[in-house]
Amino acid sequence: MLDLVNRSCLITGGSKGIGLAIAARFARAGATCTLIARHERPLRDAISVLAESGQQDHRFLVGDVGDKGLWEQAIKMNPGIDILVNSAGQSQTSLLLRTPIQEIDDVIRANLLGTIYGTKFYLKEMTRARRGCIINISSVLATTGGAGSSVYAASKSGLHGFVKSIAKEASRFNVRINNILPGYIETEMTAVIRSSTKAETLPNPPLGRFGTAAEIADAAYYLATNDYVTGTDLIVDGGYAIR
């Protein structure tokens, strides 16, 4: 179904993994996508993937979501988007006592501040238009915690209160905001966690497997197209959180 035709989407972390899977899902539904990531070559490759949907007008922007200058540039490039997906993130695979201060700052900056900045810049545009949808990629670790992931879990947990508050502020303008809380998904990020000697052994969830980026993309599509859902945390984790 091409029910995102004439919709414009901006997706951070869109060059690979969950971000790219969401962009591809939206493009197949007719949306025009702008991807943001820190490196140009993967972004160009990602745009080629999106072009397979039949559209050729997807774009990209290189930058760091924790830099407000990036968002100033993005808003000039795409002043009126319909859907913002905050998917950019950084993992952590060390106990807190062994985690460098700079890494702590980087994780909070990428996972929490980047989402807050993006939301702030585009929320103004969306409230003026009296429509919009914001989707944040959080993590099931925001609710369960995880040894070796304390800063990461804290950064993702912060999105819970953020979304609850923004949903109350923005609903009267017909702007919706939600979190997706993926469990362990087969991506480059979890491959790094699995291979790290610092991380605990990752248990399989009750469904017996890691999830796929496409399954998270389907959840994002649901949130993008259901106009009666806002302020929620949608857990997609194979039952990991009920352990």
Rank of each mutant, 00 (worst) to 15 (best):
M1F: 13
M1V: 10
L2Y: 08
L4T: 02
R7N: 13
I11R: 00
G14A: 03
S15K: 09
I22M: 12
A23L: 00
R28N: 13
R28Q: 15
A29R: 14
I36N: 11
R38N: 10
R41P: 11
P42Q: 07
D45A: 10
D45F: 01
A46G: 10
E52H: 05
G54T: 03
Q56D: 11
H58W: 01
H58K: 04
H58I: 06
R59V: 00
L61W: 07
V62G: 06
G69M: 12
G69T: 09
L70T: 09
Q73P: 03
Q73R: 15
A74P: 06
I75E: 06
M77G: 02
N78E: 15
G80D: 12
G80W: 12
D82H: 12
D82G: 03
V85H: 07
V85F: 08
N86V: 02
S87F: 01
S87R: 05
A88E: 01
Q90I: 14
L96I: 09
L97F: 09
R98G: 14
T99D: 00
P100C: 13
I101C: 03
Q102K: 14
E103H: 11
E103Q: 13
I104G: 07
I104N: 04
I108W: 11
I108L: 15
A110W: 10
L113R: 14
K120L: 06
E125W: 10
R131T: 10
C133M: 12
I134E: 04
I134N: 02
I135M: 05
N136Q: 13
N136L: 02
I137Y: 11
S138N: 13
L141W: 08
G145F: 01
A147Y: 04
A147P: 02
G148V: 01
S150D: 06
A153T: 02
S155F: 10
S155P: 03
G161K: 09
G161H: 10
V163W: 01
K164P: 03
I166D: 15
K168W: 11
S171E: 14
S171K: 07
F173Y: 14
N179Q: 08
L181V: 00
P182I: 09
I185K: 12
E186P: 04
T187P: 01
T190I: 14
T190S: 06
A191V: 07
A191M: 10
I193Y: 01
S195G: 03
E200L: 09
E200G: 14
E200F: 13
T201W: 00
L202K: 07
P203T: 05
N204E: 13
N204D: 15
N204R: 04
L207Q: 08
G208A: 04
G208I: 06
R209N: 13
A213I: 07
A214I: 10
I216F: 08
A217M: 13
A219I: 06
Y221Q: 04
L223K: 05
T225N: 03
Y228E: 03
I235H: 12
I235G: 08
D237C: 12
